[in-house]
Amino acid sequence: MSNWLPKSAAGRRWLGLAPSYFVIGIFMLVPMVIMGVFSFLEPNPYGGVKPVGSLDAYVKLFFEYDLEDNLVFNPGYLNIILRSFQLSFGATLLCLIFGFPVAYFITLQPENRRNLYIYLITIPFWTNLLIRTFAWIIILGRGGVIETPLLWAGIIEDSLRMMYTDGAIAIGLTYSYLPLMVLPIYASLEKLDFRLLEAASDLYANRFEVMTKVVIPLCKPGIIAGCILVFIPCIGAFIAPNLLGGGKKLMLGSLVQFQFASARNWPFGSALSMLLLSAVVVVLIFYARAAKKREAMEGTA
C-alpha cells in the first residue's frame, strides 16, 4: 500500500471520485460560470465582451428603447420563448402518443426478440441529425414522397404545402426525439408484473380501465422521464425549425445563435441561455418534488 494515499476511508472515497468531479467541473461548471459572467457584462460592438458590469442583457429580455429612447415593455422575446415552449409541448405530446404504444408492443414480445426491437429503434441515431432532418424535406416537400402518388392518383390537384409549416417542425422534432421517449417507458414497462393485469381483469376492470388504472400509473416514472428527455432538447432545437419550418419564426435556439453570430451581442445570448437553463431547472425541480412525494406516499401506504 502506497503511503501517499489518504488514511481515512472518506478521503479515499473522495480520491476515487476525483476524476468525475474533475470532468463535471471542467465540462459543466466552468462553461456555465463563463456564461453566467458574460451575461452580466457589456457587449463589445464586434463580438466578444467588454469587462464592464451591466444588467442590460437582462433588461433587454423584457424591455426595449423606443425611437425616443424611452424604456417600454417589449413582449417580443417572451413571445419567442412562449412559442418554443408551445412547440416543445406539442412535440412531447406527439412523442408520448406514438412512443407509448411502441414501448408497450416491445414489452409484449418474447424476451429474445425485445433486444432486436430496441436495437432497431436506436438505428436512426447512427446517422447525423442534420441528414435525418433533411430527409423529411424529400418526404414532405413539393413533389415529394407523400405528394407525388396523391397527385398521380388525382386525389389532390395542387401541392399540399406541408413543408415550411409549424406542423413540419413538430413532425421533425417528434421523429428526432421519439427514441428518447420509447426507451425510458420500455425500461419501466419491462419491470411490470403482468399478473397484475390479469388480476385487474378478474376484478371486472375493462381493457381501458386496466390501461388507465394499472399500466399507466405503474410506468409513470418512465413516462415522466421520457417527457423530460424529449421536452428539454426540443426547447433549444434549431435544426428542425430552420430546415423544416423555413426559419420564419425564431425559436429560442435560433435566437441564441443569432445573438452570437449576426447580432454580436454575446451578453444577451448568454442571458437568454441562463433563462433557458433556469426554466429547465424549474421543470426538473418540479419533477424531483413529484418523485419525492410519490416515494413518501408509497412509504406510508
Binding site: 425564431l250 443569432f258 447580432a263
Partner: peptide
C-alpha cells in the same frame, strides 16, 4: 433590431 422584429 429590424431583423429581430421581422423574425419574431
Amino acid at each position: 433590431k429590424v431583423w429581430t422584429k421581422v423574425m419574431q
